[in-house]
C-alpha cells in the first residue's frame, strides 16, 4: 500500500483528493457524504456576504466532453452558512472554506468568519468566469490579487489558498502576485469561459449565455497551468480541472500539484470517485514501486 498522505502548507490530508468548490457542498449533509466517499478534504460552495439566488436555469448542461455551467455564485450568505460549517466540522474532516468578494475588505470579513466557524483553510475565489464584479474580474489583475491576498493573510491564521483562472494572458504572473501576497498555496484552474448555442432556438442555452467549461476537455489546460505555475513558484499547488481517474490525478501531481480537486468527475464516475481515484493512484504507485506521493510531485519538470 503506497502512502497517499499529502501536505499543503500546514494542512495535512490523508489522501490528495479534495471536493472542488461548487458541487455537493451547499449543506453539511452533502459534504459529509463526500467525506464518506473518501475525499481527503472538501471545499465549500463559494460564500459571499449576502445571500444570492444566482442565475435562472438552465445553469448546467452537458456537452460532448464536459459540462458548461453558470450558476452565478448562489449562496445563502456567510451568516446562514455558519451552521453548515459547524455541523460538518463535528465530524473529523478537513474543511476548506471558499469565499468570494469584490474587494479586500469583503474577502477579509468573509475569511475571518470562515475561520471563526472552524474552517481549516481558506480558498479565495478569484476565478469564477461568469459573475460580474467578482471572480476572474479580480483574478486577472495581479495588483488586486496581491493586495487581497496579503490583506487576508495579515489577519488570518489558517492557510490561505488562491484559486485562479486560466482565462488570463499569463497565469504565472497572477500566481506570482498571490505568492507575493503571502498565499500558502495556489488552486488552478477554475472552469474555462465558454458558450453553447442551440441552433433551433438560435440562442445560447445557458440563461447567463456565458458559462464555465469543466470536465475531461479542460484537463490539458489545467495540467499546463499547474506546470507553468510550478516552474515559477515555491508554494504548493492544488491541481483541478477534468480529473476523473487516478491517472489524471497523477498527471497533475507530476506537473507539480501536491493535491487535486475533483468536481465534474462525480458525474462520470459517481459520487465515490474519490475512493476510486485513490485506489487507482495506489495501484499505479505500487506497480511503479513508488512509496509516497511526495516522490512524484513535480517530477515532470526534470
Amino acid at each position: 500500500m503506497a502512502n497517499l498522505a499529502t501536505k499543503i502548507a500546514s494542512l495535512k490530508l490523508d489522501n490528495p483528493t479534495i471536493l472542488a468548490s461548487g458541487l455537493m457542498d451547499e449543506d453539511a449533509g452533502s459534504m459529509k457524504r463526500i467525506i464518506d466517499c473518501g475525499a481527503g478534504a472538501v471545499v465549500t460552495k463559494s460564500i459571499g456576504l449576502k445571500s444570492r439566488d444566482g442565475y435562472p436555469n438552465p445553469t448546467v448542461i452537458e456537452l460532448e466532453t464536459g459540462f458548461l455551467n453558470a450558476m452565478g455564485l448562489p449562496n445563502p450568505g456567510i451568516k446562514d452558512f455558519e451552521e453548515e460549517v459547524k455541523k460538518i466540522k463535528q465530524s473529523n474532516c478537513v474543511l476548506i472554506g471558499s469565499v468570494f468578494g469584490s474587494n479586500s475588505k469583503e474577502f477579509l470579513e468573509l475569511g475571518s468568519e470562515m475561520q471563526s466557524f472552524g474552517a481549516d483553510a481558506l480558498e479565495l475565489n478569484m476565478s469564477c468566469p461568469h459573475a460580474k464584479g467578482y471572480g476572474v474580474e479580480i483574478g486577472s489583475d495581479s495588483k488586486l490579487v496581491k493586495e487581497i491576498t496579503s490583506c487576508v493573510k495579515d489577519s488570518i491564521d489558517i492557510p490561505v489558498f488562491v484559486k485562479l483562472s486560466s482565462n488570463v494572458t499569463d497565469i504565472k504572473k497572477i500566481a506570482m502576485a498571490a505568492e507575493k501576497g503571502n498565499a500558502d498555496g495556489i488552486v488552478a484552474i477554475n472552469t474555462v469561459k465558454a458558450m453553447k448555442i442551440d441552433i433551433d432556438i438560435k440562442a445560447p442555452i445557458l440563461a447567463n449565455r456565458y458559462g464555465g467549461y469543466s470536465g475531461k476537455a479542460i484537463k490539458p489546460i489545467g495540467v499546463r497551468c499547474v506546470f507553468e505555475i510550478a516552474e515559477s513558484l515555491d508554494i504548493p499547488i492544488i491541481g483541478v480541472g477534468g480529473i476523473t481517474t487516478g491517472e489524471d490525478a497523477l498527471e497533475y501531481v507530476m506537473a507539480g500539484a501536491s493535491a487535486v480537486q475533483i468536481g465534474t468527475g462525480i458525474y462520470y464516475r459517481e459520487i465515490d470517485i474519490f475512493n476510486k481515484v485513490c485506489q487507482e493512484m495506489n495501484m499505479w504507485m505500487n506497480d511503479n514501486n513508488i512509496k509516497k506521493i511526495s516522490e512524484l510531485i513535480g517530477v515532470a519538470h526534470k
Binding site: M24, E26, D27, G29, S30, N57, V60, I271
Partner: peptide, 18 residues
C-alpha cells in the same frame, strides 16, 4: 429546487447528501 438534475450541483440534496 433543481439546477443540474444529474446529481452534480447538490442544490436538491436532503439528509446526508441524498
Amino acid at each position: 429546487y433543481m439546477k443540474c438534475s444529474v446529481g452534480l450541483c447538490g442544490q436538491c440534496c436532503l439528509g446526508n447528501g441524498l
